[in-house]
Design a protein around this nucleic acid. Structure first.
Lengths: 323, 323
DNA sequence: TTGAAAGCGCTACCAA
DNA sequence: TTGGTAGCGCTTTCAA
């Protein structure tokens, strides 16, 4: 279907394209008479500016690339909300690209962003990423970038990160103030910088109080938290828990609930969107409405539609697929 | 910074742009000699095709619009993963647009997608959306679309939804098989179709067993689940729980953990990315690393960078901001 | 096997 | 206040 263009409007109104263009953007040079005339025509003929042409001409895409190491339930929703709230106001949009914690994928995504001429990049680095060498190209290309959350020492771009030291210390203080004497600190992957900085700061603070016993466990995943805790919780003398992140907290949760339910023989059954189950345990039974599966199916159907659009046998259906 | 173009390569090699273009995409007409020559030049001069021009020419953006009613921790991560897994393979990207459960915003996003000439749309409708009238324009414009999860009766596009009836029934069966006699069903917003269909199906199944007592509560939010449960859980005779979604389950969780911790006087303190706290209760103390805040700050910094890029006082800094 | 050239739709410069 | 027009970088048709 051919869409109305500036030229179409110009011909219809017997004026030049430049006049139409300017009228549409309220250029002060244009008389009100012409402006209203043009706008009416644009309205009635359903004129929509072609962003391709505009971008091409202006060399600006109004698109930002968001590259993250992984798509988790803890961080992604809030970060997306935060970013949207700022960008949408300014007329920008953003792609989400997940590196799946692979440095190579991260590099690929960076290329993709460069190729599609994004106006800027927001990036959180993978654990495999050791320096910001691969970001140098962005500097050359003059593509602004901001690193957030996961960064590297002496990065070449501005970055926004959490103050792990301060926060871990504050947490330690809370437990201390509650008078906890036997504390369990639940930490994530031992090899990550983020774990180390939180650990050191938490431990240092606690150690200032000789009367307090501190036990530390490292868990690469929420699953491991559960496993280790199922044993540790038998020690009923633990009176304070510190979870270094939402993920470790979910592991702790799971164990606590399991114990409380096992004592009572109560059953919980749930319909789940597919996100919680991997963080909870077999105490629960789920009927899973898997968002991942829905996403793949919907996307596949869409791809099919797009492909057949260019052939003669375009399927115009309104079928409903049940999962 | 001016980037290398096809024309640049053509001039350097003293051949035509069409030959360069064809050589780069391995067109059979072009001799191998020329192909290698061109490719080498492209490599050394860091040639990157200008997607703006390509899109413009081809009238295809390789971009999909994803419109969702809200960005939640339960559904968004899994749906994004699912969609990415399919689209990225095909060289497509997608924008995420959140309607914030407003029909008007949904319509705006639809306009945005049309204007930016997306190749297709994946959309989950808001609760305010009562029919698919506003989607008709997509048909006119020949923009393929797939509706997922939240849809409306007799929609004009294909849709992918969960089988609520089946899943709620299966959940009922599980509790029945466990021999539960006093069941609490925790449902979400009473006015939503999704709640009603799960409720009817669950209730119908349970009612087939006259010996079972079924209590139903509706909770518009996880907060309300907690509130109501804090009272209900005093009734220790409840031996089976059904949570109709991850969100209601989180509410149940929260109450269960609260009870189990209150009995023991144990304390939990956690550093959180900002997503869990709204689903848990005051039993926990958080030091919040707020992803939302990080997102807004990072995005704002990026906008600043982009804007100053076009002025003379471009800030080339690598400052680090701590939250 | 290669080249010339038109043209996608828009913006912006220069001229009137 | 308006019009003419060049040109963004690429693809593709037609001609050589």
């Amino acid at each position: 279907m051919r869409r109305t263009t500036l030229k179409d409007l110009a011909e219809m109104l017997q004026i030049s394209t430049s006049t139409v263009s300017r009228a549409l953007k309220n250029h002060p040079d244009i008389s009100n008479a012409v402006k209203t005339k043009v706008k009416e025509a644009a309205e009635t003929f359903n004129y929509v500016p072609n962003d391709f042409a505009v971008n091409f001409r202006k060399k600006s895409s109004k698109v930002i690339g968001l590259i993250v190491p992984e798509i988790t339930m803890f961080f992604i929703p809030s970060i997306i909300n935060g970013i949207s709230s700022v960008l949408n106001k300014e007329g920008y949009h953003f792609f989400i690209l997940s590196s799946n914690d692979s440095f190579d994928t991260e590099k690929e995504h960076l290329e993709t962003c460069i190729n599609s001429r994004v106006d800027g990049i927001l990036i959180s680095l993978t654990n495999e990423t050791k320096d910001s060498e691969h970001l140098k190209k962005l500097k050359e290309m003059e593509i602004p970038a901001i690193i957030f959350d996961k960064t590297v020492p002496k990065s070449i771009f501005e970055s926004v990160i959490f103050d792990n030291v301060k926060n871990a210390e504050l947490c330690a203080d809370k437990l201390i103030n509650h008078g906890c004497k036997n504390i369990l600190g639940i930490f994530g992957d031992e090899n990550l910088e983020i774990t180390q900085s939180r650990l050191v700061s938490f431990e240092t603070r606690i150690k200032q109080f000789p009367g307090i016993i501190l036990n530390i466990i490292y868990c690469q995943s929420a699953d491991l938290v559960k496993e280790k805790l199922d044993i540790l919780l038998n020690d009923d003398s633990i009176d304070g828990f510190f979870a270094m992140s939402d993920e470790t907290l979910m592991g702790l949760h799971s164990s606590l609930i399991k114990r409380s339910l096992n004592n009572t023989n109560k059953k919980v059954v749930s319909i789940s969107e597919g996100t919680l189950p991997k963080y909870l345990d077999e105490t629960y039974e789920y009927q899973i409405n898997d968002g991942y599966e829905m996403g793949t199916i919907a996307a596949k159907k869409l791809m099919d539609n797009i492909k057949t659009l260019y052939t003669d046998n375009f399927i115009d259906s309104n079928k409903c697929y049940y999962l």
